[in-house]
Write a protein that binds this DNA or RNA. Structure first.
Lengths: 211, 211, 211, 211
DNA sequence: CATGAATGAGAATTCATTCAT
DNA sequence: CATGAATGAATTCTCATTCAT
């Protein structure tokens, strides 16, 4: 499960239970949102999958959008954290992107719905404008971009990579990667994470020209 | 406008008018579908934007899904045609992908909603299963893939490009390109079509490594 | 066809044509009303079956209800006439009802939709209150009842039949007959008109008791 | 009211309440269906008469047809049960039909809408094909017919009644009876149940011939 | 007159949210 | 808190009727 209690020490039993149930609802919702999108997902379904009453859900979230936002914030937080971790290792652009790519593939492997949901947000950003309202979400996004930029700028400065337009490259790379991952299963891709990672990294760093 | 009367010669005035109005409805729907997606789009809105009564819409299409399908079939047909044209010039992989990339950028420039809608389908394929039912749509898709494959295989055989996994490359390339284009405006990309095309082609063919 | 031009002599060509077309519409409507009832029948269907444009129909009738009323008035008129004919022969109750019964069976044979429609009215009398407004319809009904009553009263007076409650008998007899005829096909009844007539007349006049 | 809770012992309060409300909806619908027929009846009206919100109705039935089917199944079940009871007394044809006739008159007296609805089904069988789908309904019908047949066959074998065509007689008798009852009020029939029963039974068993 | 396109009032159905228990 | 019944606003779709050509 994606939503799990992590720092339960400092909480009262009541608070822990509350958080636990809240997470159960989020996990159920996550799966359905990922599969169907925001509008398509009904509260009846969330209630059924989460095995709580429909009314109960409203004790934890004040409306459907809030559930979606909570998920997206957590998702963006997790991704942001993972990226930060990799960033903190002070790697070359090549190693940074290799690790990043591997991390996304692994994430897909273990948390497919979360990943698909993230991809979906990038298209659906209009379906629910909750995200635009979410300070946290935008903040994570901006912060992450900053890390990417820094690594790439260093790579350019050190001569590791060509002096490309950084922001465009980020758009390009993330689009390619997320799309590739989310369509890989559908397209019958049977390669291992390493093979897929190498495939992408190879293209991006060396190109497909022979020589 | 995307839907326009092309071969009106052989039609009666009545038929031409009917087609014209049908196209008006399609053009209006297209914009809204592109912006909001299938489920989000209401018939009231289509009626309002197309400036017809709600009932009138149903004189041209038997339900909402049929409008969506009609659009998608036309969109897929147009893209398929453009790709075929480029393919028929018997170009090298480099020139093929360069022209293709330019074509997609140009398409975005002149028919932004159509392009966005196409991108949306790739995520939304669940929202409406109309597409799965559309023989024409699937057919265009398969045919297009065949062209890609042939060009790439020739490129590999002739030694122009490395012996990459063709299907994975197609997934990668299309994902990258479509995502890049659809996010370029949102990301403040001010480059010309040529600049953007070169940017992408350069990465894909030469990589970002410095030498 | 049920609606046919009968007295066309005194009419101008224009009037004859008008009447002819009006009848075509009525004949088409009749079939559909008989099969589906008033509400279920759409003007689109009437237009299609009658092979006239929807608008044309409104040149002959000012609304759907008027078509229905026109049919009902004609139907009630025809039945009323047939009953009058039989009545005018001054028959015994036995012969009167025998002829009447035979007539209804024959009518069903040649004009099944008309007959079914008539039966339907007896249940549907609420669906369209047109009938309540139709003076002619009520008039035919009353007149017919009068004939029945007279024949039966004469039969009672002459000692042919028992002194039964006349109005109740009429209700009973008509209900039985109409229901029997309209369900006969559905129930797999393969008897000839004579056999069916005898069957009913026999029960009504002699009863089913053995002796 | 027609729908009432009968075996509430084994149910929880919640289930009892749910059943109670479901019955309220059915009773309201029954009246309207009887008066107007299936198509004519709107959910707005059912909601209004049953004094529930329109949405509430959908918590108990998944669509309008299901309400109609539920009613028809119950109606057919009740009638079937009553007929079985009378059948189980092993009566002569005369007593069987007398009791049956009385039962139908009594039923009309206490549950007029239910009776009218039943009569309506016999004409409307096309309006909603729900009935064709209802196994239970067809089953009750077939079973009931079987009882009629058995009683009549015994009557023929024992010499009580003439050797008539049984199926045709059933069609005749039921048509006559149902029509008579449903039109009696409308026709100003003021007789008691006994008088009406005797009237019909007398005709059917002894005929109207004077000796 | 003939036509069929245009229309909107009306009907069924869905679903987020409220609320009494 | 937990629950699910109640609700009505919103949505899709139908169809009698009008009207311009």
């Amino acid at each position: 499960m994606f939503f799990e209690i992590r720092k339960s020490d400092s909480m009262s039993r009541r608070d822990r239970e509350r958080l636990f149930k809240r997470n159960e609802i989020l996990n159920a919702s996550l799966r359905i949102f990922a599969e169907k999108g925001f509008k398509q997902t009904t509260l009846d379904e969330i209630a059924e999958v989460s095995e709580y009453g429909k009314g109960t859900i409203y004790n934890y979230f004040s409306n459907k959008e809030e559930i979606y936002t909570a998920i997206m914030e957590e998702v963006s937080f997790i991704f942001s954290s993972r990226i930060k971790e990799i960033y903190s290792e002070n790697l070359s652009v090549f190693d940074f992107l290799t690790n990043l790519t591997k991390m996304f593939f692994e994430f897909y492997e273990t948390n497919q719905p979360v990943f698909l949901l993230m991809v979906r947000i990038r298209t659906d950003f209009i379906e629910s404008d909750a995200l635009n309202k979410s300070e946290l979400f935008r903040c994570n996004h901006t912060e992450t971009l900053g890390l990417y930029r820094e690594v790439l700028q260093n790579g350019i400065d050190s001569g590791e990579i060509k002096p490309i337009d950084i922001d465009n490259f980020i758009t390009f790379y993330r689009g390619a990667l997320f799309h590739f991952i989310s369509h890989s299963k559908h397209n019958g891709n049977k390669n291992s994470i390493e093979e897929n990672t190498n495939f992408i990294i190879n293209i991006v760093f060396n190109g497909i020209f022979n020589q």
